[in-house]
Amino acid sequence: MSAIQVVRSEWTKIRSVSSTVWTLGLAAVVTIALGTLISILSKREFDSLGAREQVSFDPTFISFAGMSLGQLAMIVFGVLVVSNEYSTGMIRTSLAAVPQRGTFLFGKVAVATLLAFVVGLATSFVAFFLGQAMLGEHAASLSDRGVLRAVIGGGLYMMLIAMFSMGVAAMLRGPMLSLGILMPFFFLISNILGNVSATEKIGRYLPDQAGSKIMQVVTPFGDDTPYGPWGGLGIMVLWVMAALVGGYAVIKKRDA
């Protein structure tokens, strides 16, 4: 009974603040716009690419290029959903109404996750179709092998990013601290680790790098990643679960 109540209440909460529209809207717009832009550029560049690059040209993945930036807005969305409770002090009122803290946290995460998935999936499809339209003769089709998986995977990826942020925010509570850790992590550290050859092998087990594998249709030339698209998504799911379990442990144990 209380799980349904929490979900209804959380839906009201998420609907009634403007940050939801802003963050999710920004995530969609940035992902789509940047993906489209890079698709245009890629089409122009295609002829100047080497033979190897032309073989491993992945039109689907290129149309998702905006996700590296759009995911940051998704992170903000996830962080705010959870840490707003703490920064406003609302958490006390909420937990006084729902003393079952696990029900409260997971009800909240469930509502935000569903919303993130719907927005992420729509974003993913729009980014794909717009990107392919820009790519012209190099475009992939949704019926091509692995493409539908990649497009739905794009939605799942955005959802998992939001979930991971919610877990981290539940552990750290404050919005500033959570964003201060998550933003550099996804924007810098993950990229640096993934692009320096010495740390590359570690970098690809980070949530975003492993998870983004789901959006690849063509494996890049010389790629020796030991897991496939679903394996990568699985690694990301493990990260998300770890963050949420950590968040649950904190909310369960610590004083509100």
Partner: peptide, 8 residues
């Protein structure tokens, strides 16, 4: 409203 829904 969200508090009311939380408490049914």
């Amino acid at each position: 409203l969200c508090l009311a829904q939380l408490s049914g």
